[in-house]
């Protein structure tokens, strides 16, 4: 019993050491969304000024189908990297993608869209970032998968990659459409 007491510091240290080792696996910046399985926030954003064709974005537009909401900005470099992935998702893989244009200058956003193409079914301009806060956005790009009932089911922080789309988003979309 007494010897066990003397062994205690060693055992505690083993625990801490293992924790440190496992700690390398984690990404301290990856913050889980507080909104998973909760209804998406109610919002109504105007279109990007000068691009009124699709008429802004509101909660109502998201209802009825499984959709992807993508938060982007022209000043965000990884957004450009994920843009082809999003375009493919919307045009070839049949997932409606809606955009929230985060704290962007309208003219920059328009230039960016005309240069890179516009895969979004509709875009809402979030000039002061307040709606994005309702979504729990903490960095761009971020993407949210919304089910038919308008609940957030999945969140991805950072640029979407073909791998994330193939392994996580498409299976989830399939599952949600069946359900």
């Amino acid at each position: 019993m007494r010897r066990l007491l003397y062994l205690l510091p060693f055992l505690l240290f083993i625990g801490v050491g293992v924790a440190f080792y496992l700690g390398f696996e984690r990404d301290p910046r990856d913050i889980p969304s507080a909104l998973i399985d909760k209804p998406a926030p109610v919002f109504d954003l105007p279109p990007v000024p000068g691009q009124p064709a699709t008429g802004g974005l509101s909660s109502a537009k998201l209802a009825g189908d499984v959709t992807l909401v993508n938060v982007f900005a022209s000043w965000c470099i990884p957004c450009k990297a994920e843009h082809p992935v999003i375009t493919r998702l919307s045009r070839e893989q049949g997932v409606p993608v809606y955009g929230i244009n985060y704290k962007d200058k309208p003219e920059d956003a328009l230039t960016w869209l005309s240069r890179n193409g516009n895969p979004y079914a509709a875009i809402g301009a979030d000039q002061d970032g307040r709606v994005s806060i309702d979504w729990g956005v903490y960095g761009v790009p971020e993407s949210y998968l919304i089910d038919r009932q308008g609940r957030i089911r999945f969140k991805h922080v950072g640029p979407l990659t073909p791998q994330v789309v193939e392994e996580q988003i498409l299976p989830m979309v399939k599952h949600l459409r069946q359900g």
Partner: peptide
């Protein structure tokens, strides 16, 4: 260092 010395300690 720590593991070794604590084992020695025990």
């Amino acid at each position: 260092a720590t593991g070794g010395s604590l084992l020695l300690y025990s």
